[in-house]
Structures are given as structure tokens and as C-alpha cells.
């Protein structure tokens, strides 16, 4: 109602016919309404249909990644916490679509260090940019920013909470390698306690009737809250502490994560388990032919380097898919439809 009155007042000076004015107000309100919903905070907000829609968008961008679709738009990348990989991926996505990119990669250069609130920074940048890609060390920062910002927010990671663009590229990689998302056996390995990528994976895959296998040391086992989530949504899961060729022989997707030293209270325990979750070449002897190994990277000592040339290895291609997934997320957040992308006349190559 506040928007409606404001728009009516703003338009009155143009002396439009009543019909034109009503149409314009309706169209603008529709756009505002959509804008409010266009932010991407967590993949859990997306339906099965929406995930499939975004995957189709990513496919279009993989076919033709270089376009002038976002020409004239400004994308802000605000990284309150450094993350070179994610930032470069988002900035490349924006640049390959013709957008201009502003922002910062290092929070030390911002007024946050002078005590400025997140709200003030977001409101200021909203004056300059059409969309904000934000990485923040505090959990819930992206949700809050999406509530206060007049432009769409894309969450590029908020503390240990959510990282939906990583999830989207994981889903796209699974879809590309398996030809489907439904009825897959997905094995998650390593740090299942703190690894936000594996938690987001549960949230996103529950639409697709998966069977999960959780392979982790007891100290880093899947938390009860996520196992409850699986039970509540009828997702099958099996827990393992052993990691060998037999255990992973039934996998379609083997999703590796890093076991981090700093997560352990007992360093003896870390020394005991750190090499137990190392994927070795001979462990692939019984793998299904279609099985692919994913890893959000950076890798430290979870996957033997000799596996890199093996046809099951997919982690570098997975990172490449991030570009197309992020192009899709940026366009969707800006209100560009799949139809428009398919009929795009700005394709360069």
C-alpha cells in the first residue's frame, strides 16, 4: 500500500491517462514484488521445479557463456571475508555476461573496520549496484541483507550457515554426470559435522529421492539435526566409519570434503583419523562405471593426486561448472527468464 501511494504520487506529474497509469503502477508493483523474492539466501527456499529450471539455465550458459545479456548492469561483489575462488567465479560470470563489477575482496578496506553496520554498507551499495553478491563471516547476514536491501542479494556464503551457489554447482555437476537428479546413491565423506556444503546438499536433494551414505569419523559424524531432517523427509541414509573399496562400491556420487585439523579438540584423534579418509586409486576398483568424485576444493590430503587423471575424477570440471551455475543465479536474481536466455540475441560465442 505504501508503494502504491508513492507510485501514484510519482506518476501524477506525467499526466498519464488513468488506464496507462493503472497499468504502469501494476507493472511496477509486480516488479517490486518479484524483486523482494529474487534474492538467493539458501537453496532450501527453492522447489524441485525451481532447481530444475536453474539447471536448464546453466545448460544454456554452458552452450554460450559469452553474451552481452547484462550490459549496462552493475554487479557488486562484497566480500566481508576473503574467498578468492568464489569471488573470481562470480566476477567471471558477471564479466562474461557484459556486466560491470564493483566491490571489495578484502574487508580491511571497508568502513566496517570503522564500525559501520552491515545495514549501512548494504544501503549505500544498493544506490550504485543492480545486484549484490555478498560473502560474510556472520551467519544469517545474507538473510538480513535480503530483507533490507532494495536490490537482490545473492548469498556467496554466510559463516558456517549457507553457500547456495556452491550447492547449485554441485547439483548441476551431479545432473551433468548422471543425466538426472532422481534416485541416486550419494556418498558424503569426511567432515560431515561442520561441512556446510554437505548440509546444503541434504536440503537440496530431498526433492529427488536420494539414498545418502555418511562416511565420517565419530567426532565429525553427521549432526543429529540433519539426520532428523532426513527422517522427517523420508530420506534413506546409512552411516559408516570405514572407508574402503567395498563401502563405496554402490556410489553414483562420491562427495569428498576436507577433514580439518582445527575442528578437533583431541589432536591425537585427528592424527589417528586424518589418513583414514584419504581416497586412494586402488579404492576405485569396485566403483560403478558412472561414479564421479566431487570435491568443493581446496583439496589438501583427501584425494590422491594419481586419481586426477582417472575418469571418475570430476572435481576440476565441477569448479568449471560453477561459472555457468553462477551465471544462471545472477540472471535469475535480476529477473531474466529462461525464455529470454534461450531467445537471447546478444550471444558472442
Amino acid at each position: 500500500m505504501k508503494n502504491y501511494t508513492f507510485l501514484k504520487l510519482s506518476l501524477s506529474k506525467y499526466c498519464l491517462s488513468e488506464e496507462k497509469e493503472v497499468n504502469l503502477v501494476r507493472k511496477t508493483l509486480y516488479t517490486i514484488g518479484n524483486m523482494e523474492k529474487r534474492s538467493l539466501v539458501t537453496i532450501a527456499d527453492h522447489s524441485r521445479e525451481k532447481i530444475e529450471y536453474l539447471i536448464q539455465m546453466a545448460e544454456e550458459f554452458e552452450r554460450h557463456p559469452n553474451r552481452r545479456l547484462l550490459e549496462g548492469r552493475v554487479v557488486a561483489t562484497l566480500f566481508f571475508e576473503p574467498s578468492t575462488r568464489t569471488r573470481l567465479s562470480f566476477e567471471t560470470a558477471a564479466n562474461r555476461l557484459g556486466a560491470r563489477v564493483i566491490g571489495f575482496a578484502d574487508p580491511k578496506v571497508t568502513s566496517g573496520t570503522k564500525g559501520e553496520t552491515l545495514k549501512d554498507t548494504i544501503m549505500m551499495v544498493s544506490n550504485y549496484a543492480d545486484i549484490i553478491v555478498m560473502r560474510h563471516y556472520l551467519e544469517g547476514a545474507a538473510r538480513y541483507a535480503s530483507e533490507i536491501a532494495p536490490v537482490p542479494i545473492v548469498n556467496a556464503g554466510d559463516g558456517a550457515n549457507q553457500h547456495p551457489s556452491q550447492t547449485m554447482l554441485d547439483l548441476y555437476s551431479i545432473y551433468k554426470t548422471q543425466g538426472r537428479l532422481d534416485n541416486l546413491d550419494i556418498y558424503l565423506v569426511g567432515d560431515l559435522k561442520y561441512g556446510r556444503t554437505v548440509h546444503s546438499m541434504l536440503n537440496a536433494m530431498y526433492h529427488f529421492n536420494p539414498t545418502f551414505h555418511f562416511i565420517a569419523p565419530e567426532e565429525l559424524a553427521m549432526p543429529e539435526i540433519y539426520k532428523n531432517f532426513c527422517r522427517d523427509h523420508g530420506i534413506r541414509y546409512v552411516e559408516h566409519t570405514d572407508f574402503n573399496a567395498d563401502v563405496i562400491s554402490g556410489a553414483d556420487i562420491l562427495y569428498m570434503t576436507r577433514v580439518q585439523r582445527e575442528r578437533f579438540t583431541d589432536l591425537m584423534e585427528y592424527e589417528r583419523v586424518k589418513d583414514r579418509y584419504l581416497l586412494k586409486l586402488d579404492m576405485l576398483s569396485k566403483a560403478r562405471p558412472n561414479m564421479k568424485i566431487l570435491h568443493p576444493l581446496p583439496r589438501v590430503n583427501e584425494i590422491e593426486y594419481s586419481i586426477d587423471e582417472n575418469p571418475h575424477a570430476y572435481y576440476f570440471e565441477q569448479a568449471h561448472n560453477g561459472l555457468f551455475a553462477r551465471q544462471a543465479l545472477l540472471c535469475d536474481a535480476l529477473g531474466i527468464t529462461l525464455e529470454e536466455i534461450r531467445n537471447d540475441s546478444t550471444i558472442i560465442n
Binding site: K119, D158, A160
Partner: peptide, 29 residues
């Protein structure tokens, strides 16, 4: 590390669980 403990803003919780005996933070979950 929740944003609500670091910004001048209101907290926001949803009642959680079938027995309604827990609260879930709207921001950090």
C-alpha cells in the same frame, strides 16, 4: 556468530519441532 548478535536489529525466531519445544533462528538457523 549470528548476525543478530552483531547488528543493531531485532532477533526473529520460529517455533520448531512437532512438540513446539524449541525455537529456530530465522537468520542463522
Amino acid at each position: 556468530k549470528c548476525i543478530t548478535n552483531n547488528e543493531p536489529m531485532k532477533t526473529h525466531f520460529h517455533v520448531h519441532g512437532n512438540e513446539r519445544n524449541a525455537l529456530k533462528c530465522h537468520y542463522c538457523n
